[in-house]
C-alpha cells in the first residue's frame, strides 16, 4: 500500500488536521507521503516532515497553487496520484473542495468524512448527519478519501521525512483568487480546540456572547454557537457547531443556552465531557450532557468566570 496525504494549510502554515489524517493513513498501513502544495510553503513542508510515520514530503511550491484553488489542485493531484493506492485529505473545506475533483478525473468514487478504518478497503463514515454510521467497501483501484480529524488522534512530531520538490506545474485560466476575510482571533481554531464553549438562542443577542469571552480566555477555549444563534443573527456562521457547521470533539464542551436540537448534537456529541447550562430542565441537551446545571445563564456565567 502506498498513500498520499494532501496537507491542509491555514494561511500558508501546516494545519493541525494533517497530523490526524496521517494517523488515518497509518491505520490503513503502508508508505505514507505528504503533498504540500501552495505558494511559499517551505515552512509547512518542514513541519510536515516532522510528522511521525511520514516517509516523504513532496512540495509543489508555485503561484498557480496559491490559495489551493480546486482546478489546479485537482489537476496536480491527478498527475501525482498514479502509483498510490490511496489519496487522503482532511474533511476541511479544502479537502472537500479538491478531492471529489481528483476522484472524478480518475473515474473513481470518493469516500467522505471517514471516521474509522476497518481495513485498507473498508471504512466507517457517518451518514444522515451522524444519525447513522455506514460501513462501506471500495473496490476502486484508487481510494480517494476525506478524513474527519476527530476520528483519529494526531500523530506525534518526532519524525524526519525527506523533503523533495515536485516540478509539476499546471495551467489555470479558469479561476482566480479575489480576496479572503478570515476571522482574526487569538483564540484556538474551533475545529482543533481542546475546550469549546458555545452559546445558543438563550444568549438573547450577539452582545451577550461577550459573557463567554472571559471564560474562554481562562480555559483557552474556542467560542462556538448553535444554528439557532446564527440564524437569529447573533454571531457569524463560521462559529456554527452542528450538522451544517463545524464538527467538534474537544475534551470539554460547554453548551450555554442551547436546547440541543438534533442538528446541534450532530456537531458535538463526540466531545469527551459535555456540560450544559440551561434554564429549561427539560431541554434535550441534558440527555447528552455529563454535567447539567439548570439556571439563569446571566447569573451562572459571571459566577463561573470568577471562580475558574
Amino acid at each position: 500500500m502506498s498513500i498520499l496525504v494532501l496537507a491542509d494549510l491555514h494561511e500558508g502554515q501546516l494545519a493541525g488536521a494533517t497530523a490526524h489524517v496521517v494517523a488515518a493513513a497509518q491505520a490503513i498501513g503502508g508508505d505514507i507521503d505528504v503533498l504540500v502544495a501552495g505558494e511559499g510553503v517551505q515552512a509547512a513542508a518542514e513541519a510536515a516532515a516532522k510528522l511521525d510515520g511520514v516517509s516523504k514530503v513532496r512540495v509543489a511550491d508555485n503561484a498557480v497553487y496559491a490559495h489551493q484553488l480546486a482546478e489546479p489542485m485537482g489537476a496536480l493531484l491527478a498527475e501525482l496520484a498514479d502509483g498510490y493506492t490511496h489519496v487522503l485529505a482532511s474533511a476541511s473545506t479544502t479537502g472537500k473542495n479538491v478531492l471529489p475533483r481528483l476522484a472524478a478525473l480518475k473515474d473513481v468514487s470518493q469516500l467522505s468524512d471517514v471516521i474509522a478504518v476497518d481495513s485498507a478497503d473498508t471504512f466507517k463514515r457517518p451518514i444522515y448527519a451522524g444519525n447513522a454510521i455506514a460501513t462501506v467497501k471500495s473496490d476502486d483501484v484508487l481510494k480517494v478519501i476525506t478524513v474527519r480529524s476527530t476520528g483519529f488522534d494526531a500523530v506525534g512530531t518526532s519524525g524526519s521525512a525527506t523533503v523533495e520538490a515536485v516540478d509539476v506545474v499546471v495551467d489555470n485560466s479558469q479561476s482566480s483568487f479575489v480576496k479572503e476575510e478570515l476571522a482574526q482571533s487569538d483564540r484556538p481554531e474551533l475545529g482543533g480546540a481542546k475546550v469549546v464553549i458555545s452559546g445558543g438562542r438563550g444568549m438573547g443577542n450577539g452582545e451577550n456572547f461577550k459573557l463567554l469571552d472571559g471564560i474562554a480566555d481562562k480555559l483557552g477555549a474556542a467560542i462556538g454557537a448553535s444554528r439557532a444563534a446564527v440564524d437569529a443573527g447573533f454571531v457569524p456562521n463560521d462559529m456554527q457547531v452542528g450538522q451544517t457547521g463545524k464538527i467538534v470533539a474537544p475534551d470539554l464542551y460547554i453548551a450555554v443556552g442551547i436546547s440541543g436540537a438534533i442538528q446541534h448534537l450532530a456537531g458535538m456529541k463526540d466531545s469527551k465531557v459535555i456540560v450544559a447550562i440551561n434554564k429549561d430542565d427539560e431541554a434535550p441537551i441534558f440527555q447528552v450532557a455529563d454535567y447539567g446545571l439548570v439556571g439563569d445563564l446571566f447569573e451562572i456565567l459571571p459566577e463561573l468566570e470568577s471562580k475558574l
Partner: peptide, 13 residues
C-alpha cells in the same frame, strides 16, 4: 465561499 475560518471570494470564467 464559506471556508474554514472565514470567507473566500474567487472569480470564475
Amino acid at each position: 465561499r464559506e471556508i474554514d475560518g472565514g470567507l473566500q471570494t474567487i472569480a470564475l470564467t
